[in-house]
Amino acid sequence: MSAIVSQLAHYNAKVARSRATSEPTWVRWTLIISALLFLSLFLFIPLAAVFTEALRKGFETYIAALVEPDAVSAIQLTLIAAAISLPLNLVFGIAAAWAIAKFEFKGKSILITLIDLPFAVSPVIAGLIFVLIFGLQGWFGEWLIDNDFKVIFAIPGIVLATVFVTFPFIARELIPLMQAQGKEEEEAGLVLGASGWQILWHITLPNIKWGLLYGVILTNARAMGEFGAVSVVSGHIRGLTNTMPLHVEILYNEYNYAAAFAVASLLAFLALVTLGLKSYIEWQSGRTASANEKASDQ
């Protein structure tokens, strides 16, 4: 019976808003059309432009732009930078969320704000600070030259800048989720004799898997697409320190539009996959959440 009632309430709220709380049809459609027009101008048309521009000179030119050696090495470097920064920020995200969500300590809200810092910093500045430390005139500049180790205008700099700009994503996703879940289940595990690592592996991680995945795909999208920060530290050396977004810029500035948009279309495709995964995760986690609710109703 309660299932029918809640279904009914749902039906009332979502589909048949009562006459008193809905707008006349003409207002409704005016609003829908204005919103869609706005989104078209700023989202849909530019997105469509990426793919049409990429294919303007035909499919063969498109493929050629992607298999050209400089493009291939840019793709490789992008994958490497993402592959290194993802696990680093993943471990950090879990550690930070564990400390913040499961314990009380002084300065917690300051810590949360500090974790957010990279969101507030312009990507250009994110690149700049690593130049200041590892660049020729930087803190470690001389030492690095003496030891023949390059950070700036090399892969380590690109990785560092990428780690910095993607730093908060996973932690920001996990902290509120783990705070909401409380620590009862972990305490139950403890009472039953589980070790700390067992609790993390068997209790906490399964509970946060959707949030974790969500954070990972956001981090990945940003890591592969970062432009400003990487641009400052990379030095734009073709075939060596060019990531995909930088490669797009170089091609574009050389008026090689078809090739620029071809590489860009790959990144745009990646963005669409990211959004698809994100919707899937939201749907999945929503489903588990409502299933849990139903279970606790009965």
């Binding site: 019976m1 009632v5 009562s18 006459r19 008193a20």
Partner: peptide
């Protein structure tokens, strides 16, 4: 009446919140 018996719907119809 028990929940789901239609009493609230009837009240909302009297109010004009539901037709």
């Amino acid at each position: 009446g028990p929940s789901g018996c239609g009493k609230t719907t009837l009240l909302r119809i009297i109010a004009g919140l539901e037709s």
